[in-house]
């Protein structure tokens, strides 16, 4: 028991160290060159009196924080959804986060082009309302694992069709919509991060508090019921937590959904299935993935950049396949 706990702490600490190093690299390198001396001097320039201070604190730090929050939100959301649906393919996309956010954004750009500045708000509302709608429909027919997944797929398909339809009717909206849909952290401001960061933090705390219920739910609906759990209530609550977390992330980062699928799978390689450990570990891995993708996207094509969403899908998918196929893999439950 103590051995397992030590192993978990070491795994989380190692992840924390990797993330810390990535954060430093992300602050250090970018399209504007800073020497090592300038970098460390800029770090101490909190009042932003030098060019380096302005670059670090006004541009790169906001971007880094947005990557941390987006990754944590999506990773955590993916882990919660995979637990409550009992499906390792579950991700925020499955409960309509991406399609809901995407549809709300393209609809808003099409109908109210002057409100482009409110895209994050539309994205959040679209994502969260879609999940709430899927949850409500599932409740009507019985909140079983398969119902949630099937209804999620059906609603997502309708919304995706809506996105395609609007883009066919007015091709001009595609330019603005693409900037959102590729998943980029470019130009994110501190002010945009406040509410999403609080939401993600709140979801992290709540999911740890309710972790035992999530663990019990993973044993199957009938067993969970027998153990005294109100299965529909816990599943709906968990889905809304996951939705709030992922919606917060896509509101400013765009459609970075792949992090939600990958992070829990990678986390399971290092920590046990226990929700209390798996959810924070997935948040950590999600942050690592998004910070790394954003960092590589900026330095690989400097002074231009490759959006984090594209790079994550390009580099992450082969890595993900490697993890799944590697012989040393832990036997999946």
């Amino acid at each position: 028991m103590a051995k397992n706990r030590t192993k978990n702490i070491i795994s989380l600490l190692s992840g924390g160290i990797v993330l810390f190093v990535l954060c430093l690299l992300s602050l250090r390198f970018g399209s504007a060159h800073l020497s090592t001396r300038e970098f460390f001097f800029a770090l101490t320039d909190v009042k932003r009196e030098t060019v380096g201070g302005v670059i670090i604190y006004n541009v790169r730090l906001a971007r880094l924080l947005s990557a941390l929050v987006a990754g944590a939100g999506l990773g955590m959301s993916g882990a919660i959804l995979q637990i409550v649906t009992g499906n390792r393919m579950a991700s925020p996309n499955l409960v309509g986060v991406n399609s809901g956010a995407g549809f709300a954004v393209i609809l808003a750009i099409w109908l109210f082009p002057s409100l482009f500045a409110f895209v994050p708000l539309f994205a959040f509302c679209g994502a969260f309302l879609t999940t709430a709608f899927i949850t409500a429909l599932s409740r009507k027919v019985g909140v079983s694992k398969s119902n949630v997944i099937l209804i999620g797929l059906a609603v997502s398909a309708i919304l995706s069709a809506g996105i395609s339809l609007i883009s066919l009717i007015d091709t001009d909206v595609l330019v603005s919509y693409n900037a959102f849909s590729v998943g980029s952290l470019s130009g994110v401001k501190f002010e945009q991060l406040m509410i999403p960061a609080i939401t993600v933090g709140f979801v992290l705390v709540l999911s740890c508090v309710f972790s035992q219920r999530l663990d019990i739910l993973s044993l199957g609906d009938n067993t969970a019921h027998s153990l005294g759990l109100c299965v529909p209530r816990v599943r709906i609550f968990a889905m809304l937590l996951a939705s709030a977390s992922a919606s917060s992330a896509v509101s400013f980062a765009g459609l970075l959904g792949f992090a939600g699928l990958m992070s829990p799978h990678i986390a399971r390689r290092f920590v046990p299935e226990n929700a209390k450990i798996l959810i924070p570990a997935s948040a950590l891995i999600g942050s690592i993935l998004v910070v790394l993708s954003d960092f590589l996207g900026r330095i690989m094509a400097a002074p231009s950049e490759i959006p984090a969403g594209i790079l994550m899908a390009l580099s992450g998918s082969p890595f993900f396949l490697f993890l799944l196929l590697s012989k040393g893999g832990r036997k999946d439950a």
Binding site: D215, G220, N222, T223, S226, R268, P272, E273, N274, R330
Partner: peptide
């Protein structure tokens, strides 16, 4: 308390 036919796999 109920024991069902198919025991779900678990990593616990």
């Amino acid at each position: 308390s109920c024991l069902y036919q198919n025991a779900t796999q678990s990593s616990f």
